[in-house]
Design a protein around this nucleic acid. Structure first.
Length: 439
RNA sequence: GUGGAUGUAGUUCAAUGGUAGAGCACCAGAUUGUGGUUCUGGUUGUUGCGGGUUCAAGCCCCGUCAUCCACCCCA
């Protein structure tokens, strides 16, 4: 009886090419994070349910993978990396230091319905600064978002920035803070359902006058100075929140990053733990796939687990969504083959020579593989072609006697005869540099 | 979770209820010194899966699974 090799809805296998692209992406992101002084951490995939649901809304309750383990413990799979991080901070605050900057790249699980770029198992890539509530930290997260996305080859994206606190000040100023959560959720849909639809929904929540004031607040325009001025006056004059926002945009301006950032008061974020600045990143060429990097400031998150106040700010890159977007836009960053050279198997008795030669070249930093069985040469070529290996080495009797080889550029089909190991190394490395220059 | 569309070879796509097809890819053999050509032959397949209607179902009906779209929410 054969079991059908099926997999669950929203869960996916990752084939070598795809996985290679993903690993490369993760690697370059990690290198970026480290240049900012962020440290890696990890937490368990499974936690006690009460730990994860502590501050979740009704929606997260529905989406969480939850079950009893064999010891009858009520457990859940982490559905983001921020909540486990809050638990982590509360548990280890005495062993750590503040401010603490960490990044965390790992899988999370959500049992929601699937769509393009929406999966039930996907990678998130979080980076946060906790232990301080400062505009520099807020800005550094924004800067890292810009830097990370740029580092992986993106250049047409917009990071939309807003401030949850400013919105709440505005609501309080207009005496409609009671429906804050519903209003925030409605406002968040502006870019999707349009102004008139949002207005209708707001009217059912409040009165017409309030709805119009909310609308003028969230559609304040794109020019920062005028938008900021109207936001400030609509929320009853300068406040702590408006000052923070002004400082942050001042820094964006001074670092010459205006093209990538935008003040958009309709960005509010569905997660209710955000208390300050919030942001979302939209790809200019594929807005329909949704935000590929979002986050914000959450000053009370760890208060669920400790009496100590641990303010934080951070962002999360949706790696799988980003990859789906890159694939859709056909702008994947595939570096090509990982292997520089294959040594063909010509004679069953020469394998130790093949492996010895491979070791010599690996010692110089090349990626070398030995074809493991004496098959027809045509099949060995086919294998090399499939793995996109650029060079093939022939070690026959003549070659063994004279300590020279025949090497072939498998793409150009150009042969190099009677060459030494040094020659082979030189040819391969110069070819490698050449292709990197081209890409 | 709710509503809708779709599901045929590895892939891109055909087939009025009447015997499952084409290109590319793939495999074997021949030819090319060591693979790009050409020739010959071949698998291209439980038509997603399970039922039902019918003399007969890829096609019609029901269920189920998956993908995509909208809602919800979000990375």
């Amino acid at each position: 009886m054969i079991i059908e090799p099926r997999i669950l809805k929203g869960f996916r296998d990752s084939l070598p090419k795809q996985e290679r692209i993903k690993r490369d992406l993760i690697h370059s992101l990690e290198m970026q994070f480290r240049t900012f002084g962020f440290e890696p951490i990890d937490t368990p995939a499974l936690e006690y349910t009460d730990v994860l649901l502590g501050k979740g809304s009704g929606e997260t309750d529905k989406q969480i993978y939850r079950f009893l383990d064999n010891g009858k413990r009520d457990v859940s799979m982490r559905f983001d990396l921020t909540v486990p991080f809050a638990r982590f901070m509360a548990a280890h605050i005495n062993e750590l230091y503040e401010p603490f900057k960490r990044y965390h790249i790992a899988k999370v699980w959500r049992g929601e319905n699937t769509q393009k770029g929406r999966f039930r198992e996907f990678y998130q890539c979080d980076f946060d600064i906790v232990g301080v509530d400062s505009m520099s930290a807020d800005f550094e997260i924004l800067l890292m978002m810009y830097q990370s996305l740029t580092a992986i080859g993106l250049d047409s994206f917009t990071i939309k920035v807003s401030h949850r606190g400013l919105f709440n000040t505005f609501l309080a100023h207009n005496g409609i803070q009671e429906q804050s959560a519903e209003i925030l959720r409605t406002v968040d849909k502006l870019s999707k359902i349009g102004e008139t639809a949002v207005r209708e929904q707001l009217c059912t929540l409040t009165d017409v006058a309030a709805a119009d004031r909310i609308l003028s607040f969230i559609s304040c325009g794109k020019d920062f100075k005028t938008a900021f001025a109207s936001l400030t006056s609509l929320s009853g004059g300068p406040s702590e929140a408006s000052e923070r926002l002004e400082q942050i945009f001042g820094m964006i301006d001074e670092l010459g990053l205006n093209d990538y950032f935008e003040l958009d008061a309709s960005i509010t974020r569905g997660l209710d733990y955000y208390t300050g600045i919030v942001y979302e990143t939209i790809l200019t060429d594929l807005p329909s796939i949704g935000s590929i990097c979002s986050g914000g400031r959450y000053n009370e998150l760890a208060s669920l687990y400790t009496k100590r106040s641990i303010p934080g700010v951070g962002a999360s890159i949706g790696l799988d969504r980003l990859l789906a977007a890159l694939e859709e836009l056909e702008s994947s960053t595939d570096q090509g083959s990982m292997v520089d050279l294959i040594i063909f198997a010509l004679d069953e008795h020469d394998f130790s020579r093949y492996h010895h030669t491979a070791q010599q070249l690996r010692a110089r930093g090349l990626h070398v593989e030995v074809f493991p069985t004496k098959k027809k040469l045509q099949q060995q070529f086919k294998y090399a072609q499939k793995k996109e290996i650029p060079f093939g080495l022939f070690i026959g009797e003549d070659e063994a006697a004279s300590e020279t080889f025949t090497m072939k550029n498998l793409i150009e089909r150009e042969a190099f005869e009677h060459i030494s190991i040094d020659d082979a190394y030189t040819i391969i490395t110069s070819h490698r540099e050449h292709t990197i220059d081209k890409s």
